[in-house]
Design a binder for these strands. Structure first.
Lengths: 224, 224
DNA sequence: GCAATGAATGACTGTAAGTCAGCAACGGAC
DNA sequence: GTCCGTTGCTGACTTACAGTCATTCATTGC
């Protein structure tokens, strides 16, 4: 029965090509300005067909977003796996996130959708779960590094690793979002370089999460 | 000519009553689920009339939001004006924000709109400017406290006051938003109390922005 | 060939933001 | 009191878009 298998493959290819088209349109216009008719046009399919493969516009959007999440996960994994002290790897993670922001701005922008649960209504449970799972694995990676820092004696053990990850990641995300939207405005009107603000914020939070030994390592690493 | 004056007054009253109606509907349903027909119904006016007073749904939304911004400004002003050391007032500000979140959750939710510039397209320049101005005055208040901390020798002078304000305010806002959306989820699945995470984050950032003298004051104030 | 299966279509429905031609009520002139 | 101009209000209409479904078309197995 090679035929059903071929059909399966073709279906999968179609699913992907729809996502390619959706990505193109979402990158250009964002979730709200993009229309299903445009995506259908870009995919060279009729609108009805899109709905045979995806349940809603939001499902399509999240599926595109997950490509970005996957890229981020891979880069994070690479950073975390390095054979370095935890403090160095935490620093590397902050740098990695900024680099991801620079290299994959369009995907980064899509992440914002996730922080706005009002829009989650149209999302099918299935897609939502996949998203959550991917998201979770990012947290696990960060928590792992923080834990190893605690073992090394460079990270305070009176803190919850998840809390530390949450605080640092949230802070960085918010500032990156601001860089995306308002970098020029802050530079012109307030003479603030938000990239510097971000580095500052990362260092401040990192410092307060470290032990004295950790802080020494940090300063050595930053000055090197 | 008392008549034109009376008419002005009546117009102003109508403007306000439209905002009352809009507030009711937006609080219940949020920006997207709320419809102009519902707001018209609640205001006991026709939809067309709403557009005589406000240019778009988003204008209405932001005008409601500014009521919240004004409440926040007043409370912040009260906190800032107190005759206390800067460190204490910075602590008070973080507490004040959490209290605002508890007491005026609906307004707080509306602030999220501001962080999502994709929606700003329908907003008239006029309303946007008013919003910006109000927003700006919040920053001024925070910056004032940080500056006075620098004068007192409790806040590091190598930092930019605006940057410190930005970092602390953004961090608190993000975590409060998460508390709003995912408090129960974090509690159940990860055994994290996000209120505690928020306190932690506030303390960590505050600590790293203070001088040694400032940190002593902080610890005295926290243990009081 | 020919029926059966299923993939793809696009006209259609429903909904909601925003518009505008017309109506009504009020005030001032005489 | 009557008329007319001005102002405020209306709701049916236009437009736009997400999502649906009866129909068409192509492929496969007999």
């Amino acid at each position: 029965m090679g035929i059903t298998e071929r059909k399966e493959r073709e279906k999968e290819i179609r699913r992907e090509s729809i996502i390619d088209a959706a990505q193109k349109v979402f990158f250009e216009k964002g979730l709200f300005a993009a229309t299903m008719d445009e995506i259908a046009e870009a995919a060279e399919l009729s609108k009805g067909t899109l709905y045979l493969y995806y349940r809603s516009k939001e499902d399509l959007y999240l599926t595109v977003m997950m490509r970005g999440l996957e890229i981020l996960r891979v880069q994070m994994e690479r950073t975390v796996r390095r054979n370095e002290p935890a403090v160095q790897r935490m620093l590397d993670l902050t740098e990695m996130y900024t680099r991801f922001f620079d290299d994959h701005r369009n995907y980064f922008r899509m992440f914002h959708f996730f922080n706005t649960p009002q829009f989650h209504k149209q999302v099918s449970d299935d897609v939502m779960r996949t998203c959550d799972r991917n998201n979770r694995s990012l947290w696990e990676l960060m928590i792992g590094v923080i834990r190893s820092g605690m073992d090394e004696g460079t990270v305070r053990t009176d803190l919850d690793p998840m809390e530390v990850a949450l605080i640092m990641w949230s802070s960085a995300t918010t500032l990156l979002m601001r860089i995306d939207n308002q970098y020029d405005l802050f530079r012109a009107k307030l003479n603030i370089d938000l990239h510097n603000t971000l580095r500052m914020s990362n260092l401040m939070l990192l410092e307060s999460a470290l032990t004295d030994a950790g802080r020494e390592e940090l300063h050595a690493a930053v000055h090197h």
